[in-house]
């Protein structure tokens, strides 16, 4: 009976995923599209749970739905405020077809007729069909699970995913941290932070809620980080939760955003990659190789790296949400 229920649940989930994805793509209202995108992320997290991949589910919910959604929403808000400002500047001129006014129109007006609909659909069907054919022929590969299981004893941790991410394939994880950092460097290179003029001061409810919510988020983040060594969790998920707490704090104090001085801030942002590489280079000389740990030191070193990575990810995500480099960075 419960099997049947699960099948029904899976089917509903699948239909829901496809439906929400379609509605999101077809939406003519950007705000609605963003909300649908966040919904899609949450449904996708459920799908990962059903595929028995709780680590990915956590990451998808926290980063895919939560942080990305927040970034998209703040981008929309910025677009609106830019467009309003432009329009106020010169009310008589006709709108620039490629300018911010056109973007504002795109927020609500129906898009131009879909001339690309048939080619796009054909392309999607052909590629989708080929993918299905290829997947159909795939064996039930065991992947690397047996090899990983064999080496769990020397990995320093008890959770296979953490063992792969921070020990066996630490190089990949290091580069993923680097990519998050490069994204921020790219965003900072485009300009300085400027305050959103249109945002009203928050009422009493937001700060009140935050007083309750932020401590809970911090405890949850730290727990998820600590749990990573033996259960689903880890630096990326924990960093996203702490980052979300930071974003809430930013939202509650839009007028007087405390800006950290440049060097400590950059040290914090680069702490994850910096410590990771430093420990990795020590491993080159006294350990088994670049980005390797002596087995008896594996557990404490992994914890050190994870704590630094969590801090850096959280800081980077908040900085991406604020967008633009802090003024202190230019002095």
């Amino acid at each position: 009976m419960s099997d049947l229920l699960l099948v029904v649940f899976d089917l509903v989930l699948l239909v829901g995923l496809l439906g929400v994805a379609w509605r999101c793509l077809a939406s003519t209202d950007l705000f609605r599209a963003v909300v649908l995108f966040i919904t899609f992320g949450l449904l996708l997290a459920l799908a990962w749970v059903r595929l028995e991949a709780p680590d990915i589910a956590l990451a998808e919910a926290a980063i895919g739905a939560g942080i990305t959604g927040a970034l998209l929403l703040v981008t929309l808000e910025r677009l609106r405020s830019i467009a309003v400002e432009r329009r106020r500047g010169r009310p008589d001129e006709p709108p620039d077809p490629a300018g911010a006014d056109a973007l504002l129109h795109a927020l609500h007006d129906p898009p131009p007729p879909r001339r690309t609909f048939v080619p796009a659909l054909t392309f999607a069907l052909v590629v989708g069909g080929l993918m299905v054919t290829a997947l159909w022929h795939q064996p039930d590969a065991v992947g690397l699970e047996p090899v990983v299981d064999e080496h769990m004893g020397v990995s320093g941790v008890d959770h296979p995913i953490t063992a792969v991410l921070l020990n066996f394939r630490a190089y990949d994880t290091f580069l993923e941290l680097a990519i998050v950092l490069i994204a921020l460097l790219g965003a900072w290179s485009l300009g300085r932070y400027d305050r959103l003029p249109a945002r009203p001061a928050p009422g009493p409810i937001l700060p009140g809620t935050l007083r309750l919510l932020v401590p809970v988020a911090i405890v949850t983040g730290v727990y998820i980080l600590w749990a990573g060594s033996h259960a689903p969790g880890g630096a990326f998920q924990a960093g996203a939760i702490l980052g979300a707490a930071g974003i809430l704090l930013v939202l509650a104090r839009p007028r007087d955003l405390p800006m950290a001085p440049s060097t400590p801030l950059r040290l914090g942002l680069a702490a994850g990659v910096g410590l990771f590489l430093a420990i990795g280079i020590i491993g080159l000389f006294i350990g088994p190789g670049l980005l390797g740990y002596p087995p008896e030191w594996a557990y404490p070193l992994i914890i050190v790296i994870e704590v630094a990575a969590t801090l850096s990810i959280a800081l980077t995500l908040v900085a991406l949400f604020i967008a633009g480099r802090p003024a202190g960075d230019d002095h």
Binding site: L144, H151, F168, Y171, G283, G289
Partner: peptide, 13 residues
Amino acid sequence: RVALGGWEAPLGV
């Protein structure tokens, strides 16, 4: 070929 972290393929990079 250099095994990063001392982990040979297929386990490591």
